[in-house]
Design a protein around this nucleic acid. Structure first.
Length: 795
DNA sequence: TAACGTACATTTTTT
DNA sequence: ATGTACGTTA
């Protein structure tokens, strides 16, 4: 993150226009960034002044247009790099845009300093004006976990039963209030009564507490800036003059607070260009307001609307299927995507008996596609993705792929910095850089166990509060006063002493921050704690700690590290090996794959029952947009599937195919479902098909001579060729060789996911393993290591 | 304080 | 089915 400097920026803003135009001639002569833009994109790029709404459908080259627009602003001399504000939602998007702008401009420009996420830009601003909302500029940013622990304290203090009124729920409420830019005093009475009539009260207390802790949560970053802009016109005025051009990505995902922040910043010059797609708004549940994009024209009078409708990603059939689905939504701004890529495979639809069969079939299909058995060119695993509605659906795929030895990667999931051990370690780092960080202190006083239970911690708190000092100093006083006895006293003294020494070492600076971090984790006994832990997760946790320390290398010091880790730390651990991606539909937004599988299209699962119950038609429409997003991720091959039976929370349930299946336009779909599935078993797929008779697609499914369909034929061909003992893919051969040679019955082994276990049987590459925690599983040898080699994780 | 048992819920997720 | 969060026992 490049730092910036006021004087520079303000000087720039006041530069006479004649000097700005310097680059203009250059830009006119050669503008390589305009090459290959279609007319609509070009218009979006070249309309620099005034409000512009770029409605960019899926795969229509919106990032290309956005980056070209930045390039255009800079090369024509309309703006200097630091006069452009470009906002994205994710760090990933920001990073990509930086790279692409850099590529367009070459050496000419160092970069656009104010290109970043809403949050990172607001942090930068808030650090400069923190005192206006009662904070110091070195405030800490709390994550969800800290938030909840803090709230819990307040809830307990109010004497509320936190069983019936969980802190998590209130945290969610407060978050939603902040998303709507409601400060405690602006909270509508209807909302303040939420949470057992205490919502408003505890919200106010929470904000007060944050202030005394010199901290804020994610929602505050936006909310505080909006407050500052509203209460201090002079500050707002500065920024309005400063940012002469504003660009916003994924505008359909903005919440009220972000919207207000943008409107305030753009109020004077209205040079704002918002890019978005109302059809891809899938974050309503976390406060995004589709209304923001639908209302753009009213908000910014005379706005120019540019529609990007030419799709460069998917085949005709895939686009057709997606368009057919999304047409079911009302109140769209309305775009019609088209492509020049005619032909291609139809979207394939297949029904399965149950979820396991679905996973099995997809696994086989992936292997076939990988080896090119389908009669098509082979596709690499990296080019394939499975997109599910809910993360629990991933499990059946993981289980299946684990047993057949198909490499996969799960995208999303718990973030690296959210993991217990990483957060613990960071709490130590926080205490080293700021000893007064009470939340960090509370987190690690008794981690590892130091014999400091609730009572001891309470004593420390009392001591700290009555003397008006931090918990660490409170602990010091308590020790001096001999207020603590036994093991706890000795251990606490060791901790206090340790923190002092590590802190001093950090300040003196003759040790690198990496050495200090290692020292702290070592001497505190934290690493030891995990080394002695024999649960299956322990080795992984030690790995994560090592990774955390490695991540420190990229920063100057611990402070710099902590500064950024809260906002920018995704684990995009790019792995060289080819793997199938498994992720949720939400996580897939913005990505694309040649081949996409969309399993679990059953009513109740997708569209999700809960979504429909809670948000009715609005919820259903958001689910439909999710379906649209899913299909449009596919470039060449899209396979939708559903299962008649599925185990949900341990209970077998039968389900009907998703209503979205019926909405797929028939002519873009090929049905692969074998006819044997229909009418056989009572109360299963047969019934569900009967129940839905009349719908075009089901009718077709029932009548179609699927044996003659090209898809079914290929399916057969493949299966017969599979049956003959043709040598399988070389990948599997390697596994065979490895597995057979390296494991014996009775051997102790370790598995990344299941932990430690004992080999019960060996059959070729398949091993029966009895895991200590996870129970008996069939696993491929490739995923196992000998137990002794797993143990020695040096640290 | 640790180990064990019981009750409970369980969409989607960034920053 | 499975994880977790919390209360009870030793």
């Amino acid at each position: 993150m490049s730092s910036f400097n006021d004087e520079d920026a303000f000087e720039a803003a006041s530069l006479p226009l004649s000097q700005r135009a310097m680059g203009a001639a250059m830009g006119a002569r050669a503008a390589p960034y305009l090459d290959g833009l279609n007319p609509a994109q070009r218009e979006a790029v070249e309309t620099l002044d005034g409000p512009v709404l770029m409605l960019a459908g899926a795969g229509t080259g919106k990032t290309k247009a956005l980056t070209a627009r930045i390039a255009h602003l800079l090369t024509t001399g309309s703006a200097r790099p630091n006069e452009v504000l470009a906002v994205t939602f994710t760090n990933k998007a920001a990073r990509e845009m930086k790279i692409r702008v850099g590529a367009l401009l070459g050496e000419a420009v160092e970069g656009v300093p104010w290109l970043g996420t809403f949050h990172s830009i607001c942090v930068k601003q808030l650090r400069r004006h923190a005192e206006l909302v009662g904070l110091k500029s070195n405030f800490t940013i709390l994550d969800t976990d800290d938030q909840i622990r803090l709230l819990k304290q307040l809830i307990v203090a109010e004497g509320v039963d936190d069983k019936r009124w969980p802190a998590r729920m209130l945290a969610g409420l407060i978050d939603s209030w902040k998303n709507r830019a409601w400060t405690p005093d602006a909270l509508p009475a209807s909302e303040a009564g939420a949470y057992n009539n205490l919502g408003g009260k505890i919200y106010a207390q929470y904000q007060e507490r944050l202030r005394t802790l010199n901290a804020c949560d994610f929602g505050d970053l936006l909310l505080h800036m909006v407050t500052i802009f509203q209460k201090h016109p002079d500050v707002l005025d500065q920024y309005q003059r400063w940012f002469r051009y504003i660009l916003v990505d994924e505008y359909q995902d903005t919440n009220v607070a972000q919207y207000m922040w943008l409107r305030l910043l753009a109020a004077s010059h209205k040079n704002i260009c918002c890019v978005g797609d109302d059809d891809q708004s899938i974050y309503g549940w976390r406060g995004a307001e589709v209304g923001n994009i639908l209302r753009f024209e009213k908000d910014f009078e005379g706005a120019k609307i540019v529609k990007l409708e030419q799709n460069y990603r998917s085949t005709e059939h895939i686009l057709g299927a997606a368009s057919g689905i999304i047409a079911g939504n009302k109140g769209r701004l309305g775009k019609t995507l088209f492509t020049e890529a005619k032909g291609g495979e139809k979207v394939r639809l297949i029904g399965h008996w149950d979820g396991e069969e679905e996973a099995r079939w997809i696994g086989d299909e992936i292997e076939a596609m990988q080896s090119g058995t389908r009669g098509m060119k082979p596709i690499g695993l990296n080019q394939m993705a499975i997109l599910v509605r809910a993360s629990h659906q991933m499990r059946s795929f993981e289980d299946r792929f684990l047993t057949i030895g198909l490499p996969y990667r799960v995208i999303g999931g718990p973030r690296f910095y959210e993991r217990l051990e990483v957060r613990d370690a960071m709490a130590y780092f926080r205490l080293i850089t700021s000893p007064a960080d009470d939340l960090a202190f509370e987190r690690i006083v008794n981690t590892p166990k130091r014999g400091l239970g609730d009572k001891a911690v309470q004593k420390i708190q009392v001591m700290a509060r009555s003397n008006g000092v931090s918990l660490l100093d409170g602990a010091r006083l308590l020790l001096e006063a001999k207020g603590l006895g036994g093991k706890g006293a000795v251990e606490l003294a060791k901790l206090v002493d340790g923190l002092d020494r590590w802190g001093a070492a950090a300040r003196i600076g003759d040790m690198s921050h990496i050495e200090i971090a290692e020292m702290a984790l070592e001497e505190s006994g934290y690493t030891e704690m995990w080394q002695n832990d024999k649960t299956p997760e322990a080795p992984g946790r030690l790995d994560n700690l090592k990774e955390l320390v490695k991540a420190l290398e990229q920063f100057e010091n611990l402070q710099g590290f902590l500064e950024h880790i809260a906002l920018v730390m995704d684990n995009d651990s790019e792995d060289a090996t080819e793997k199938v991606s498994i992720m949720t539909l939400h996580a897939a937004k913005g990505l694309e794959f040649p081949a996409v599988f969309l399993p679990g299209w059953e009513d109740g699962l997708f569209p999700s029952q809960r979504s429909m119950d809670e948000s009715g038609l609005k919820g259903l429409e958001e689910e439909r947009r999710l379906a649209y997003v899913g299909i449009t991720r596919a470039e060449e091959l899209c396979t939708i599937s559903f299962a008649g039976n599925r185990r949900v929370y341990g209970q077998w349930q039968s389900a009907l195919p998703s209503r979205f299946v019926d909405e797929l336009p028939e002519r873009h779909v090929e049905i692969l479902t074998p006819p044997g599935l229909y009418g056989h078993q009572a109360s299963t797929v047969g019934d569900m098909m009967d129940a839905l008779g009349g719908s075009d697609l089901h009718e077709a499914a029932a009548k179609a001579n699927v044996y003659n369909s090209p898809g079914w034929r290929r399916l057969q061909e493949r299966q017969s060729s599979r049956g003959m003992s043709q040598p399988r893919e070389s990948k599997n051969m390697v596994i065979d060789a490895q597995a057979v040679s390296s494991f014996i019955v009775g051997e102790r082994v370790f598995h990344q996911k299941f932990g430690y276990g004992e080999i019960m049987a060996v059959e070729g590459d398949k091993l029966d393993v009895s895991f200590d925690k996870a129970g008996d599983k069939k696993v491929v040898g490739k995923f196992l290591v000998s137990a002794d080699s797993a143990g020695d994780v040096p640290f």
